[in-house]
Amino acid sequence: MPRPPAPKATPAKPSGPPLGLIGAVTAVLVALVAVLVYLAVRGDGLEAEGAANTLPAGGGIVVNPDAPEDATTVHVYEDFQCPFCGVLARSIGEGLTEKAEAGEIRLTHTIMSFLDGNLGNDTSSRAANAALCAGDAGVFSEWHATAYESQPTEGAGWTDADLVGFAEQVGLEGEDLSGFETCVAEGTYLDYVTDMQEAANREGVASTPTLVVNGETLSREELSLLQSDPGALDSVLAAHE
């Protein structure tokens, strides 16, 4: 007579859900948080309204929109807290402005603000906003030059009073000055400033200063030449015509 099969030994049942399940849930949670953070910081498509003479989609501010069609295009990517942007501006800023006024070049500035995150303040964004406010008042180039003349040591930052002070130095007064002050205090163009940062990253610009002449990014050697020798501007521009 065959023996009946022995009853199966039931293994001790673990209490609670299996470890694999807990692990999988943890992994899903991590992925979910990552995606949520991604969605939360996602740009809304660069639609912010810019100031006078700004290009759409965070494209930057054009110093001389009336430049002739065949003028050499010069695009400066900068951050007001970047020390070498200051060195570059103090070296060739005047030359660029003159060439823009003469219609030899079409000059565009994209003012980035990534150094805020790096330095833990908000000076880059506020200064970029103020530069656009200066554009509204018709003194972008002058304000830009004056700000770089008194660039703080990296990280020290500027107060709103500093930013307004530069506007006084370039001769803004009366309604123009009070309009500028309001524009700075309200951060009128801060959304556009965010768009400029993002647009620059989209164009592959990952550092400042970056100079693009007729679509060609200047080399490190060309940049350091321009930083030390304002007279080199003609030859460097000519090399990219």
Binding site: V37, V41, S113, F114, D116, G117, N118, Q197, N201, G204, V205, A206, S207
Partner: peptide, 14 residues
């Protein structure tokens, strides 16, 4: 704490 910088660091790898 600096997501802009983080994104830009990835951009820099091209």
């Amino acid at each position: 704490g600096d997501l802009t910088g983080s994104v830009q660091a990835v951009v820099a790898y091209e």
